[in-house]
Design a protein around this nucleic acid. Structure first.
Lengths: 144, 144
DNA sequence: GTAATTTCTCAAGTTCACTTTAGATCAAGA
DNA sequence: TCTTGATCTAAAGTGAACTTGAGAAATTAC
């Protein structure tokens, strides 16, 4: 009677149970525990997970998503304005990303068939962003 | 007098020397060796690297890029039609990706302010793609 | 009440895309 | 020639995002 099990959540979101536990360690969900120590989730957790999944599709790293979510109330359902604030921020990210890809496509259109890809001349090659000095580890595939 | 050193290539592409060696293990470049065993690159290697960097910006995994490049001549400059073939394939990927993001944005537009994000109703949440059963390891952030 | 599921924790493994380290060799400038 | 800097190889480390495995306890189904 008091909430969803982790299995329920997995079934509804399509996520693996292990993934949901992993997300918990990153602060994306905050389940309560029942008498036996099992996690119990509410509808707000379902929303938080959905939101995280959407944000991931936009290419945001988990840490960023968690940071966004940190502003939301933990055990209560967030208000409309809570979601609106985050959604709006995400919409901006999305538009930036779309614009980047479109620029890339247009450059590619200009290049197809020319075979140039010369480092000095090609617009595709020189996107003008600073790629250097991002530290160790794999770089994010799509530059944000 | 016979070609560029790995340092030259790094300077021109902005890649780390170690990254260029790593790409070699994936078949993206195929340098020759001088008498002392040092790598020597030609202009075609520069083009191959540029192309790989562009493809990465599009979110293609290295393995896919290498597969595309496998069709190109290794030690000669590729022909115009070689590049055109690959570029065209990439353009299609790009357009698919842009369309996905636009759908996502439009859905988000419909949702901003409503605060729903309900799993059953929200178009954002149910992208209709099969997310399950992709095996171990991290999943690619952006679904191709 | 017993068997079958599910869940628990915690540590270790996996993939991708690289970087770092170590010790040795090669190349180039003063 | 000497020395500084670039390059070599091979192995191990890194960060993100999870998964897998083991052994135990809780829950559910019959």
């Amino acid at each position: 009677m008091s909430g969803l099990t982790i299995g329920d959540l997995a079934a509804r979101t399509g996520l693996a149970v292990s993934a949901i536990r992993f997300y918990e360690t990153h602060g994306i969900v905050h389940p309560l525990r029942n008498a036996g120590g099992h996690r119990r989730y509410g509808a707000h957790d379902l929303r938080r997970l959905s939101f995280a999944m959407i944000a991931q599709r936009l290419g945001l790293p988990l840490a960023d998503i968690a940071a966004h979510m940190a502003d939301l109330p933990v055990h209560k359902a967030p208000s409309k304005s809570d979601w609106a604030r985050i959604s709006t921020a995400m919409r901006a990210d999305l538009n930036t990303r779309i614009a980047q890809l479109e620029r890339l496509r247009d450059s590619l259109d200009g290049c197809i068939g020319c075979g140039c890809l010369s480092l000095e001349a090609c617009a595709l090659y020189n996107p003008g962003d600073a790629r250097a000095a991002e530290g160790p580890g794999p770089r994010t595939l799509i530059t944000r």
